[in-house]
């Protein structure tokens, strides 16, 4: 076996220096956010800036005063959980059918599903809002959740995954007399765990960070998600940066923690969707 190619000598240091500069640009803003979040407004707006904070932890408390942060946190958790659970179930059901069952109109139906994937979200929004208004769902958790339960992308992604599983598996199960539902549930789903994990991670990420839809349907602060609540603070009359930094840090922390814990899965999930999606 030949040796893998070596970078030219001396290149290694240059590589690390470049990567370190890059990493500093990526992480620096977060550090500055943290430092600012512990300053008084007066100190944060000092020229030249002070680097060490005043350790003013009460800024974090002020976030709760400025926003119903607890309610919004709960709304975001519930919305994210429901959308993710719903998509995993519904998308895997449809994906299994498209990948493994034969039925008239399969190609056509799948084409219709794909067409949804091509349309940018603003095109749905006005009628979706009207539906929510007609049903009296505005300013409710239901409005946040329901349209997000369905995903053409999720069906597409999981179908790719199911197509990659060996055909012999379900043929064997059929011989044993299993019906489609049992094959889906007991044979396919357990094997599809990496695919489900990838879709789950993407859905959590998308739901937690979603702004456009929550902003439109839930305008009552207590019914907002963190993303929309935080966004509502910006504007002409509120630029208390230390408190804003504290709030934005708190709001993004859960997903950052999740990422740190499940880093490998996140990266694999993204790479998977990039390769399959």
């Amino acid at each position: 076996m030949a040796e893998p190619p070596r970078p030219p000598r001396g290149g290694r240091t240059a590589t690390h220096v470049t990567l370190l500069i890059g990493a500093a640009v990526m992480v620096g803003p977060f550090l500055w956010q943290f430092l600012t979040s512990l300053k008084t407004l007066t100190n944060a707006t000092r020229v030249p800036p002070t680097f060490l904070p005043d350790w003013r932890w009460s800024n974090y408390g002020d976030v709760f005063e400025l926003l119903p942060f607890g309610d919004q946190f709960l709304n975001t958790v519930l919305m994210t959980a429901a959308r993710t659970a719903g998509q995993l179930l519904f998308c895997s059901m449809a994906a299994y059918a498209f990948a493994r069952l034969r039925f008239p109109g399969r190609g056509l139906l799948f084409g219709v599903f794909l067409s949804v994937l091509m349309v940018p979200p603003p095109l749905f929004v006005i009628p979706q809002y009207e539906i929510m208004a007609d049903l009296g769902w505005l300013n409710s958790l239901t409005a946040l959740i329901v349209p997000g339960l369905f995903s053409a992308f999720g069906v597409f992604l999981l179908r790719q995954f199911f197509l990659g599983l060996p055909k012999e598996l379900d043929e064997a199960a059929r011989l044993d007399g299993a019906g489609p539902l049992r094959i889906y549930w007991s044979v396919m789903l357990p094997l599809a765990r990496p695919g489900l994990l990838a879709l789950g991670i993407l859905t959590v990420l998308w739901s937690w960070n979603d702004l456009f839809w929550p902003l439109i349907v839930n305008t009552d602060p207590e019914q907002m998600t963190l993303s929309a609540g935080l966004a509502s603070l910006q504007g002409q009359f509120q630029t208390d940066y230390p408190v804003l930094m504290a709030g934005s840090l708190l709001a993004s922390l859960p997903v950052i923690v999740l990422f740190t814990v499940m880093q490998r899965h996140f990266i694999q999930g993204i790479a998977f969707s990039g390769n399959k999606g």
Partner: peptide, 24 residues
Amino acid sequence: WKAVRVGAAAVLAAALAVSAAGCG
């Protein structure tokens, strides 16, 4: 059309057994 829209959405919602928290 509004009726169709409401009807379809309502049926769907019922089928999914999503509790309509906002309908007080």
